[in-house]
Nucleic acid binder design. Structure first.
Lengths: 361, 361
DNA sequence: CTGTTAGCGCATTCAA
DNA sequence: TTGAATGCGCTAACAG
């Protein structure tokens, strides 16, 4: 730890602590001569100002909080990296927290972070309405929402065009001749999923189809597999009931067990896509021969799956960057206008096939 | 921000600030009556102690630093999650930094973190020897190394049995009859890769084979693809030259262009595995028919590749947990013994085939 | 059982 | 062009 304090530097350089402070922060004029002396002293003593003390004096910590549901979700991994890079570029630090979509954990983290006097917060809220988030906002700390909206919080939202992206995906399936199109979606407490459902519905409606509620499978984002399944080293997600019920896997079984099975499924995030592929494998269903899959959110390995997955890609890293950049501007007291949704990109690969005849109903 | 200070609580409860502090920290006896009064005051005033002020007074920030090369690498993602969970369980926070294996960035982050007076540090060092890491260690802040060793730093290392795992992998290939076995490895500045190379060599030597240097392909961990290749939304890794040269892709070309091509390749981490699969695809080489692949480090999607990849799995999440747990004990002043490497697990899938005849030499 | 008070290391106002 | 002195909010002697 920096055992040498500003006082030591001052004595060594034969100036007051005020002067040392001012040369460090360039906050008032100091003659070349004394400045050099101070700088030299800092150098030889290896002086390193204490961020803590500075924080107490200035009421600014140069630290921001980042709250996501799970860093292990590749979407948030990339977002986090984007935030990190941008934040660090400004000489700030990021404190990371995972909520696992649990509102209580979110509350706890919000409490802890505000005690830490973070200078700003980037959050993918676990639910649409949070009292604590509101009160943090009211206390004046800048907030940027990422990926998901929160009601009542006067903060910019950085997200993609979820409705439009979903619309694109489903439209693609329609154009390939599909008529019974299922959707596998996450919790409707999350605005993102609602938007994607909306896009799905709009595409179907525009095509003159009616919405069949049995084709809408809901799941949480977690546990895409009945466990003990021998796959990699992810956190023990199966630990809480909250995370268990109902898994992607189960939700999908329902869809596949339907008397008239959908010929295509729109899967609304990348974790559920994994679950879907596992489920198809277990049921020995071939994609795209038996069923077509299109997914929201791309990843590095999507082109390497069997088959390569057709997706709607979101600019994940850029999402994080944008949010961080916005937050920095808010922290610096600038006015920012609320950004419009970032565009998504359609990536056609091989997981959707053309169907000729409308399946018998 | 917490506008209400300890003084306000004290006045409201008609006690001294000392008493308030003591009921909060349970650091000396307080009568039930006054304690209740204080607690009530805290409640009604929504008092939230300032972590900053506390930090200045106690010289402890309840914050640790975590330095990895890239959170986007699924290995470090899982490790980070493990660290996070364990650290938060103790009421501490984690500050995250990505070095991209760049020693200068590492130095910079170390500097910033020590100015922040973190209570401890978990680091996957970018290189074996770091002066700054040494000096941080000497200044008395607890350090735990993760995944990789660093010379001269008196800190526990939490890693897996890299040598043994590599040995296992190569032994498997040998048992399947392979004799020309290539290795695709990362930078030798990282101890982990050296250990894996050692395991590779030991297996070959024990089998009575001589080490063929042309079968050893070295690469950095980055950029597993010539860019503009239309895959997901990872950070712009191609931005620095450091990260570009020589990519997995190129290193692999060399191996595949060999006059007598290896019949199997041991790929020493998951990022390079992606690169390998892309390269095979581009060369229209079938795995395992044309070439067998075995990889160090598992991931959720490995079973879904075509073919499912045989791997040596490491307990990534557990690795992070263990490191964090160790660090907490160091922070609390406990003596800890240096842990032995965690065991790896062999996961046979379908990317390695038996070869009958020894290929003509 | 509880209160007074002196720092923690820095930034900053007021003076000079 | 620079110093002296005060305070940021809390903890922890020391005192009672």
């Amino acid at each position: 730890m920096s055992r040498v304090r500003i006082k030591d530097v001052a004595e060594y350089a034969n100036v007051s602590t005020a002067t040392v402070s001012h040369v460090i922060n360039q906050t008032r004029f100091v003659s070349d001569e004394t400045r050099d002396r101070v700088l030299a002293a800092i150098e030889t003593l290896h002086y390193q100002p204490s961020a803590i003390a500075r924080g107490l004096a200035t009421n600014a910590t140069r630290t921001i909080g980042l709250i996501v549901s799970d860093i292990t979700n590749p979407f948030f991994t990339a977002v986090t990296r984007g935030v990190e890079d941008e934040i660090n570029r400004h000489g700030f630090h990021t404190i990371l927290s995972n909520t696992d979509e649990d509102p209580e954990r979110e509350d706890e983290y919000l409490r802890l972070l505000s005690a830490r006097q973070i200078d700003g917060l980037i959050i993918a809220p676990a639910r649409a309405h949070s009292e604590r988030l509101l009160s943090i906002s009211e206390s004046g700390i800048p907030i940027v929402l990422i990926d998901r909206a929160a009601t009542g919080v006067p903060a910019p939202l950085v997200s993609v065009d979820n409705e439009g992206g979903a619309y694109l995906a489903v439209k693609h399936l329609l154009e390939l001749g599909h008529r019974r199109i299922g959707i596998l979606m996450g919790m409707e407490t999350i605005s993102t999923h609602v938007m994607r459902l909306n896009g799905y519905k709009r595409a179907l409606t525009e095509a003159g189809l009616t919405i069949d509620e049995t084709l809408i499978a809901r799941t949480d984002n977690w546990l895409y597999l009945p466990h003990a399944n021998g796959i990699a080293s992810t956190p023990p997600k199966a630990l809480t009931n909250f995370q268990m019920t109902p898994s992607t896997f189960n939700a999908l079984q329902h869809l596949l067990d339907l008397p008239s099975r959908p010929t295509a499924i729109f899967v609304t995030n990348n974790q559920m896509t994994l679950g879907t592929l596992f489920a198809l494998k277990e049921r020995k269903l071939r994609c795209p021969d038996d069923i077509s899959i299109i997914s929201f959110d791309d990843h590095d390995w999507a082109p390497l799956f069997d088959p390569p997955i057709t997706v709607v890609r979101q600019p994940t890293y850029h999402l994080g960057q944008t949010a961080a950049n916005l937050l920095m501007r808010l922290i610096h007291g600038e006015e920012v206008e609320y950004p419009s949704p970032l565009p998504v990109e359609f990536m056609e690969r091989e997981s959707c096939r053309r169907v000729e005849a409308i399946p018998s109903l």
